[in-house]
Design a protein around this nucleic acid. Structure first.
Lengths: 217, 217
DNA sequence: CCTACCGATCGGTAGG
DNA sequence: CCTACCGATCGGTAGG
């Protein structure tokens, strides 16, 4: 019989992953050395290699867990809300709330996937695509006509761009919190999509500045 | 007297910078080695050190030139258009058109500033801030009330997020081109900001789904 | 003979 | 502007 694992084996793994992700986000994957990571964990480099086969496995497992967590969060949130605006708003709020505690791993997700081998990178990108699909579905349920056709992807990526870019500037304890930002973006989008949704109807005219911009180069 | 520079000195520097930026965007700054860069340029590592004092100088000069170019582009564009929607639309179009030819250096700008020393990083960030200010001004001229107060920065960063994030997904030769995307985003924003701009006026009611989302957790 | 590590050092390669 | 190297540090692994 194999000897049972130490009871804190999984805890140790999680602690290492958390520290690794902090290092990746702060120094970049290539500059974050296993030696410094070991020092930050108060252990030896050899100990890291007891828990993980190599450096790339640290990155992969951190990103795989995080994308899986985001996907589960999206599914849970969407299941708990009526389709349409309530689900969209709850989804955006949930993502922004999660970001508050996942700044480092999200920065790593945006910057470090390229350091993974192609099979592992593909797996992460596949999970990212499924998360994007949840947002696309939520937008589609709210504005089916605007999201129909070739604008579906650009529209959802434009919204996710507004959310992802918060890592470059939004401070969780600043004057505008993650939740207020989530609501601001959702409100903006609901009103922005409204025109496309009702295009051609009498109540929606040209741009309120008096032009619709069609003739600017 | 100092010996005159070779007539193609500046051309060589530019060629090296272009290749360096491609390498930074593709491999990440830390993994992009000077040896491979020399090989890609068809020259020797020592030759690179003839044109630039060190690796960091390559990154700094590439980012400094690019941000200065974007700032000049913004100023030129805004000077040529009437304030308000025309200027905003022209600015977004100009940025997206420039992106088409500057994919690599923009990726490097988004990811590699952290590898610069603090003085050089501050200089780049200062120029970034001035570019952001141009967008904030253009938005403010279009929707002065919505941009008043603490929402000014979140609103402009939300818009720039939509534009910056295109690097992760938008193909210049795909079904939607950079210009069509620029117009889509501007239209969305003009209509989205419209509600805030006229908040309280009779012609703007609650969300068109029948709720305004104020009571979702 | 397993696990959970340690101190020390491997072969290669980085920027310069 | 090349070949020939340096001090250091990299990711990863040896024996015990």
């Amino acid at each position: 019989m194999a000897r049972p694992r130490a009871p804190d084996h999984d805890t140790q793994r999680q602690r290492i992953l958390d520290a690794a992700v902090q290092a990746f986000a702060h120094s970049g994957y290539a500059n974050a050395s296993m030696s410094r990571l070991a020092a930050a964990c108060g252990t030896s480099k050899a100990s890291l290699y007891h828990y993980f086969p190599n450096k790339e496995a640290l990155l992969f497992e951190a990103l795989e867990r995080y994308t899986r967590k985001l996907l589960a969060l999206a599914d849970r949130t969407l299941a708990a809300e009526p389709r349409g605006e309530p689900a969209l708003r709850a989804l955006v709020r949930a993502l922004m709330r999660e970001y508050r505690y996942s700044h480092a791993v999200h920065v790593s997700l945006l910057q470090d996937v390229k350091y993974l081998g192609s099979a592992q990178a593909d797996q992460i990108r596949g999970q990212e695509r499924r998360i994007v699909e949840r947002f696309a579905d939520a937008l589609e349920a709210t504005a089916p006509r605007a999201m129909a056709g070739p604008r579906r992807k650009p529209l959802v990526m434009a919204m996710l761009g507004s959310l992802n870019f918060t890592f470059a500037w939004l401070r969780p304890d600043g004057p505008m919190g993650p939740r207020e930002y989530a609501d601001m973006v959702v409100d903006l989008w609901l009103d922005g999509l409204r025109r496309e949704e009702h295009a051609g109807s009498a109540e929606v005219g040209p741009g309120w500045t008096g032009t619709n911009g069609q003739d600017y180069p």
